[in-house]
Design a protein around this nucleic acid. Structure first.
Lengths: 163, 163
DNA sequence: TATTGTTATACTCTATAACTATA
DNA sequence: TATAGTTATAGAGTATAACAATA
């Protein structure tokens, strides 16, 4: 995922010879864009996530589903789709896998015969409890260059865009 | 892409009946995560981008390549890959398409016989000039709930994570 | 030997259409 | 008729291995 250690700019102001093949391209235009920056930052956090969550066998979407179920027992597939902005067909195999792993179970919905209530099993509860702690730590590490105050501000501003 | 207008919380403290199938699930845990929020915000901007840039026939990656070439004439595929964190095999067909559309052209690299210098054509220059203005506007619209000051802060904090 | 650009390929992610069973 | 869940499938996006030409 390229850490780009940044080999010290060194050049004071000079734009450098255009054909001179500088190691690092001028990306200043892209760096003024919220979309570009949000994606680049997300990619970094994702790399931390993939590495630290591999032991649990959880990808980001699995974690989100499990965490949502931990705080919303009995939620339906439809509700998960709405909450996570994913399409119903893409949730099917995901839920089936979590079920076959014994992390969740499907129970008939109390009020709607079409729907299925999703619940964490004891194993699912134990796993997500550990996983959430790991995610909290990985997030702290991925955003270590931010103060707690800055991190709160960052999240608040991101939410002003999508919430 | 779900606008989720937020129907006003209203409930003071109560956790609500777990099985009661609330329209909106409790996602407060996920909403404390930088990764989750960055992705959700990026998704919103992406939707604006896809809609407004469709007339130009440019996806985000195409725009990034063209914009980078506008400010770094003669850049190589390898440099674009490094700058955008994409893999060389995935850039090949992309560059080939931009070439066949007459937006860029490949010239032999002055100092390295293996490399190819990528340059915008006049048509490519004209297109990216317009496209950049459209992106600037779409970004402003997508982040309309932020003040100019907040938008700067957001970008600065995102860059502290990945730069 | 290392690097640039490339082909082929595979795996994941995301999207659409259509079906079933309930409501 | 509308909705929940599902199937099948198609299309992006992303990844690895291996090769030819050049350094």
């Amino acid at each position: 995922m390229a850490s780009t250690p940044k080999p010290a700019p060194a050049k004071g102001e000079q734009a450098a010879a255009p054909q001179g093949k500088p190691d690092r391209l001028d990306a200043r235009m892209l760096e003024t864009l919220v979309g570009y920056n949000a994606r680049r930052a997300w990619l970094i956090v994702s790399a931390f996530f993939a590495e630290r969550m591999a032991p649990y066998g959880l990808k980001q979407i699995d974690f989100s589903v499990l965490s949502l179920l931990a705080h919303n027992p009995g939620a339906t597939s439809r509700q998960l789709c709405n909450a996570l902005d994913i399409l119903p067909p893409n949730l099917v195999s995901l839920v089936a896998t979590l079920d076959s792993r014994g992390l969740i179970e499907r129970r008939p919905h109390p009020h709607d015969g079409r729907a299925v209530g999703l619940h964490l099993t004891a194993a699912g509860e134990a796993l997500i409890r550990e996983a959430e702690q790991t995610v909290i730590q990985l997030e702290a590490d991925a955003s270590a260059k931010l103060t707690a105050r800055e991190r709160e501000t960052l999240i608040r501003l991101l939410q002003k865009i999508y919430l």
